[in-house]
């Protein structure tokens, strides 16, 4: 009950935000919501099912490139491109998951495998002429006279509502998954795979499901990314730095919790932005400052709140 009230208040605040705050702050919120969304997608795989992916940028990149290339090269509208993007990401995820789980690769080795796939996909796209190779892929930017949701072209406010809807949808989906049979099975696998199997759980199938669901959700973020930023470079979108950025939110907010990834993304992005602003107001420019800040946040959380920021807050709020 309390949780519902607080969640409704948050929803109202987020829906009203573009009417209240400046355009600059809306763009900051878009980034925060973007990370809240991908963080939740990653949390399904690691937080729920215990399968560590350090290469989630792979699915962002695949989603982004699939939809963007279809749009640029063949004029395929983004919502159709989105379906293609999801299919491509799911196919990659199923292949990786099949390889890993069929041959019993787990833990650190599985994480290394996810990095390897992200890396060689990056190198592949660097030489993939149809999508611009290392020179990048650019989406034509039309005059922003109005918003066209079907073409995914429009004002930052439109993009704000799109990513807000995605983040809210991911939250609802996560909640539903966590309270149904698949969620219990994922947590059992995360806690002890042998015991899970002894209770009749087909661990191979459920781990594969976690990877595929997470990848599908992440690829949608990629489509958003492509149409929001309008330029894609393999070097950037598939980079391991991007993969790490995705996982910071859930780790800082609280792995495996529903609200942790959302809270983590907001705390991290808003603080990082405040820091950038503060430093530039002092007339300084320090390259790499954001990364150092991420590192410090991670350090503090790992040392003092190993379960993340959210669980103690949830206790305090008696949720």
């Amino acid at each position: 009950m309390r949780a519902r009230v607080l969640l409704s208040l948050l929803a109202v605040a987020l829906v009203a935000a573009p009417f209240v705050v400046s355009g600059y702050l809306v763009s900051v919120l878009i980034v925060a919501l973007y990370f809240a969304y991908v963080g939740q997608a990653w949390n399904i795989m690691m937080g729920f099912a215990g399968q560590l992916s350090l290469g989630h940028a792979l699915y962002v990149g695949l989603g982004a490139y699939t939809a963007a290339a279809l749009f640029v090269q063949s004029g395929v509208p983004p919502w159709l491109g989105l379906i293609a993007a999801i299919i491509v990401a799911m196919a990659f995820a199923a292949a990786i998951g099949f390889l890993a789980f069929r041959f019993g690769i787990s833990g650190v080795y599985f994480a290394l495998l996810t990095i390897a796939f992200a890396e060689f996909t990056r190198i592949g796209f660097d030489h993939f002429g149809w999508v611009g190779a290392s020179a990048g892929l650019f989406l034509p930017v039309s005059q922003r006279s109005g918003s066209d949701l079907l073409a995914l072209r429009g004002t930052p406010t439109m993009f704000y509502y799109v990513i807000l809807a995605l983040a809210a949808g991911a939250f609802a989906l996560s909640r539903w998954l966590l309270t149904s049979r698949i969620g219990f099975y994922w947590m059992a696998i995360r806690e002890d795979q042998d015991a899970a199997q002894a209770l009749g759980i087909d661990t191979f199938r459920y781990k594969l499901a976690a990877v595929v669901v997470s990848a599908a959700m992440t690829s949608i973020a990629g489509v958003f990314f492509a149409f929001y930023y309008n330029n894609l470079f393999p070097e950037q979108i598939f980079s391991i730095g991007r993969s790490i950025e995705i996982i910071l939110g859930p780790i800082i907010g609280g792995l495996g919790t529903l609200f942790g990834p959302v809270l983590g993304a907001f705390v991290l992005q808003l603080l990082a932005e405040a820091l950038r602003e503060g430093v530039s107001a002092l007339g300084l420019e320090i390259p790499g400052l954001t990364q150092v800040f991420y590192g410090v946040c991670l350090l503090v959380v790992v040392m003092f709140l190993p379960n993340g920021v959210w669980p103690p807050i949830a206790r305090r709020l008696r949720l």
């Binding site: 219990f184 099975y185 947590m187 059992a188 806690e191 002890d192 042998d194 015991a195 209770l199 495996g256």
Partner: peptide, 17 residues
């Protein structure tokens, strides 16, 4: 091999599912 982070009840729920 308990599912350590899950509650005692949830452990048994996994079996009952």
């Amino acid at each position: 091999k308990p599912f350590g982070a899950m509650t005692v009840l949830e452990n048994v729920v996994v079996g009952a599912l």
